[in-house]
């Protein structure tokens, strides 16, 4: 069972506790669209004791405002003991630059993991 959310050129596909982002995230305030979806899924995943997975590999572009809700989620997960994994395309230059820096939120026990693939 999967659910798809669309906002402009950005598509979020939610399946189990995985969110896959595709297209381009260029909205004025993407947090309004992405934030609630991530927060809800994070709560569900935490309640089920599962890791929430954010898959950016198929994302073509995102503006800097898109990073904010992701950082906030990672910060929240780190504080509250939740599990979040971010996967990105390590061969894509922009993805590597943007997402590898998020490693500062990673935890040693891999509760929070940032993976370039």
């Amino acid at each position: 069972m999967s659910e798809t959310f669309q906002h402009g050129e950005l598509k979020l596909e939610v399946k189990d506790t995985t969110v896959t982002l595709t297209g381009r995230s260029t909205a004025r305030d993407p947090g309004n669209f992405i934030g609630p979806i991530l927060t809800n899924l994070y709560k569900q995943a935490s309640a089920a004791g599962k890791a929430m997975i954010l898959d950016f590999r198929k994302l073509d572009y995102m503006n800097s405002s898109t990073i904010t809700p992701v950082i906030r989620l990672l910060h929240e997960a780190k504080k509250s003991g939740g599990k979040v994994t971010i996967t990105y395309d390590g061969k894509s230059r922009w993805q590597d630059l943007s997402f590898s820096a998020l490693t500062i939120f990673a935890t040693e026990d891999k509760r929070i993991e940032i993976r370039g693939e």
Binding site: I67, R72, H75, S98, A101
Partner: peptide, 29 residues
């Protein structure tokens, strides 16, 4: 500068809409 800004964004209270990352990203990425 980018790392410093990421840390600050994570420290900001929820509800602050400006990330301040755009300009730093122009320099870094």
């Amino acid at each position: 500068a980018y790392l410093m800004r990421l840390r600050e964004v994570s420290s900001q209270a929820m509800g602050t809409s400006e990330s301040g990352l755009g300009l730093v990203r122009i320099a870094y990425e």
